[in-house]
Design a protein around this nucleic acid. Structure first.
Lengths: 351, 351
DNA sequence: ATGAAAGCGCTAACAC
DNA sequence: GTGTTAGCGCTTTCAT
């Protein structure tokens, strides 16, 4: 029961010209006379003609769609990334097809295949935690679909661009901030080490300690599985029960940090005077808890923007069929330490 | 330089059959012999054949893509909605093309047109605050593309389904909760009244007061423009400076509520004993502030899921070309009051 | 049980 | 400056 869509042929018939002429007129092809061009454009807009991009895609073998696969949409960081991607893609004339892997490898593979079936011009992906095998990506890349990975990238996939955040440096900086503020017994609650991000943060933490000539204290390092507030709470209870209690906690994520804060307050200790707490991610909640949480802000929007730019540049490069292969790039984005109250001791002023 | 994609014709040639046979075999058409079917499927998977959905779309005049337009992705509620949409769409065999209107009418119109150009099978939209005119939606609907609006819906667009949240009831319930807990001087900081949601919350607030026989107090009602924490802070400062200070504040959004909490604490007053605070939305931060914020949870995921279901049902209905027109639906989802510490007075126990 | 042929809407090489 | 033609990859009558 669908009304027929307006096609080039409809306009052509009405105007007694050929569809080719209409197509050219609409694209401001120089060969077309001023007069026909105007006639065509006028009628096209009167009829609300909208080119069928599916037909264009089939003909030109490019869909002007980029596929995006992320582990989880309901997530401040990833939604910022998507926003950055969409902004760039939109300006460059690309549409975005979105997939959510739910952190599942199987789903990720299906999504890659579905995007390939949709003949997207390129794929942006942040890997699921489960993903260890990259043949699904290799395959589409071999069929000429460029892939750019971001955040949780695939180092072992060759010939593709990636955008990462310098988690090592972010962790290094925030721990250094604690050290500069006089904290010396700094504990770390890290995440599962498969996504390389947690591993990097752990390394940054260790490196900062080393710079200050401090030894790693095994008992001060705890590892989350689920990265929840509850885990932060429980590990912190263990940490503050230690005979030599840490004076600061660096949590892999703000949510874990907030769990830590609850445990510390419950124990009747002061943040930051007894125990400082710093997080990672700069979620909205970090600014509103009490005391406001020092954390590491990750440039999600910029990451999405840059990843989209790299991908679209590569798509353009491929379409120009240059003889030289495209030079893939690895970009690293810097984090920013947001110093708030949870990590700076309140000095008692003489009054 | 792109490698050629594998097509039906490639498989057909290799097997000395026609493309039609291959197409049928792959779809388990009953006419095809067991033998050919297996041969075809085997080769198809060996060659990693993936049907070109663009070609399918052109041929069958359906893209198996639904378009989604939302005002802002970086937003807990909307990202939940998207997640709900994607889950349903995925199970039903549809892909999702995502657009972000940035709350701008112009961008929304462009997005609708772009989605129509992409020949999406249907559109899900939550309107930009600016949007007053619905001709862009009417137009695509007239060309046979079903539209379902959700959250910020278009009441004046006829013949389309919508899904809303009962904001009136949510506000009514949370204010009633305050009343039941003994609060009588309840202020309200509302949002801009164009998106109908804020208006409904305001009405629910007023209705709850009325049920308790309380008169509206003009001075207790403040209106935000930007709906920020800062506005919450500033209005609350005004409210608590009032000669007859309110004993509770209902904020249109958790962020505004948090601004209110800051102002109250700054004034040395206790939450909830001097002034209770309740918010709306149940963002992650509501559970972690101190005291934990009572708020109204909105079923974002369910909303997305339901909206997708209504849209896809309608698409299916249209494709069956029934003689009777589709019966459009208006669904209302219920909210849930999350009672936390910010609204329940601590009774001092005799010890 | 399979093939031939037409056509979805568009574009681009080639005519004139 | 404009028309003709072919074809992108697929599905679907209609034949056989």
């Amino acid at each position: 029961m669908k009304p027929k869509q307006i096609t080039l042929a409809d306009i052509a018939k009405e105007l007694n010209v050929s569809p080719a002429t209409v197509s050219r007129a609409l694209k401001d092809h120089p060969d077309i006379s001023q007069e026909t061009r105007e006639k065509v454009k006028k009628l096209a807009s009167a009829l609300h003609y909208r080119p069928n991009t599916i037909a264009q895609g089939l003909r030109k073998k490019e869909s002007k769609i980029i596929g995006v696969i992320i582990p989880e949409i309901v997530h401040h960081f990833f939604s910022s990334v998507i926003s950055g991607i969409m902004e760039y893609a939109y300006k460059a004339g690309y549409r975005v097809m979105l997939c959510q892997s739910m952190e599942m490898f199987e789903k990720e593979v299906e999504d890659v295949e579905a995007l390939f079936s949709s003949r997207v011009d390129g794929i942006l992906i942040s890997l699921a935690n489960e993903t260890k095998d990259y043949t699904h990506l290799e395959e589409v890349r071999n069929y000429g679909v460029p892939v750019v990975s971001f955040d949780k990238v695939c180092y072992s996939l060759e010939n593709h661009s990636m955008v990462v955040i310098d988690d090592y440096e972010g962790a290094y900086n925030v721990v250094t901030h604690l050290l500069e503020n006089g904290y010396r017994k700094i504990a770390h609650i890290h995440g599962p080490l498969n996504p390389i991000t947690s591993q990097n943060r752990l390394n940054g933490y260790k490196a900062a300690l080393k710079t200050y000539g401090l030894a790693e204290e095994k008992a001060y390092i705890k590892g989350c599985h689920l990265v929840t507030q509850e885990e932060g709470y429980n590990f912190t209870k263990e940490l503050i029960a230690l005979p030599d209690r840490p004076d600061a906690i660096f949590a892999v994520t703000d949510l874990v940090a907030i769990g830590a804060m609850v445990a510390i307050k419950e124990a009747g200790l002061s943040i930051p005077n007894d125990v400082a707490v710093v997080g990672y991610s700069d979620w909205a909640m970090a600014a509103v808890v009490e005391p406001a949480l020092t954390t590491v802000a990750q440039p999600g929007f910029e990451m999405g923007n840059l990843a989209a730019r790299l991908l679209i540049d590569e798509i353009h490069y491929i379409n120009e069929d240059n003889e030289a292969p495209y030079q893939h790039q690895k970009k690293t984005l810097k984090t920013e330490v947001k110093v708030r109250q949870s990590s700076v001791k309140k000095t008692v002023l003489a009054s």
